[in-house]
């Protein structure tokens, strides 16, 4: 999964550099959404803090 996220960012950069602006932004937004999902997936352990 993590490798896929890096591949998606590389794809976004490549598309953006080669004139595909809208697809680049679309891939970027998909990647950010997946990053947020994967962050939530990994943030499972309880924090020992009193807020």
């Amino acid at each position: 999964m993590m490798t896929l996220l890096f591949i998606l960012f590389a794809t976004s950069m490549w598309l953006g550099w080669h004139g595909k602006r809208k697809p680049a932004i679309f891939v970027f937004l998909v990647t950010i959404a997946l990053c947020a999902f994967w962050f939530k997936h990994h943030a499972t352990s309880e924090l020992h803090i009193d807020l």
């Binding site: 993590m2 890096f6 960012f9 950069m13 953006g16 550099w17 602006r21 680049a24 990053c35 990994h42």
Partner: peptide, 17 residues
């Protein structure tokens, strides 16, 4: 750590555009 690297690359994407 890897997710933080990804966020930095996201910043790089915007600057590159």
């Amino acid at each position: 750590c890897l997710l933080q690297r990804l966020a930095m690359l996201g910043i790089a994407c915007g600057a590159m555009m």
